Simulated scan of single mutants.
Amino acid sequence: MRNWLAAFPFIAAIATIAGVYAGVSGRLPEPLGTHFNGTGGHIDGYTSAHGFLTWNLVELLVLGIVLGVFVYLRRTAPGTRWVIALGWGLAAAFGYLSCVTLLINVDVTDAADVRLPLWRVAVGLAGALLCGALGWLLAGPDRRPSDRRPAGHAERLALGRGETAGWSRSVGSPLVAALAVVTLCAALVIGFLGDRLVAGSLLVAAVVIGAIASVRVTVDRRGLALASTLVPYPFRRIPLDRVEEATSRRVDPLTDFGGWGYRTCPGRSGLVLRSGDGLVLRLTNGREFVVTVDDAATAAALFNTCLDRAREQ
Rank of each mutant, 00 (worst) to 15 (best):
G278K: 07
H50W: 02
L73W: 06
D107I: 03
V217G: 05
I190L: 11
A297K: 06
W136G: 00
L254W: 11
V106Q: 03
V171M: 01
G270K: 01
T264V: 13
Y21S: 09
V198G: 05
T284V: 12
G132D: 06
A93Q: 10
F8P: 07
L134T: 09
P232K: 08
V291I: 12
Y262I: 14
P31F: 10
A227M: 10
P9N: 12
G162N: 10
W4V: 08
L240S: 13
E59T: 10
G160S: 14
R216H: 13
A213V: 03
G87V: 08
L28E: 03
N105Q: 10
G140D: 06
S25G: 02
A128Q: 06
S168G: 07
H153K: 11
P141Y: 00
G64F: 05
D147F: 09
H153S: 09
H50F: 05
V251D: 03
T264P: 02
S146D: 15
V106T: 09
A133R: 13
P150T: 08
L175Q: 05
G26P: 03
D295A: 09
R287N: 11
R27P: 03
C265T: 00
I104T: 06
P150I: 04
I14P: 07
T305P: 11
L138I: 12
R237E: 09
T218L: 15
W260E: 12
A92V: 07
L281H: 01
T264R: 10
A158R: 09
G160F: 06
T47Q: 15
Y72A: 15
V24W: 03
D295V: 00
P253R: 07
W88L: 04
R311W: 07
R311C: 05
D295G: 04
R221V: 08
T16R: 10
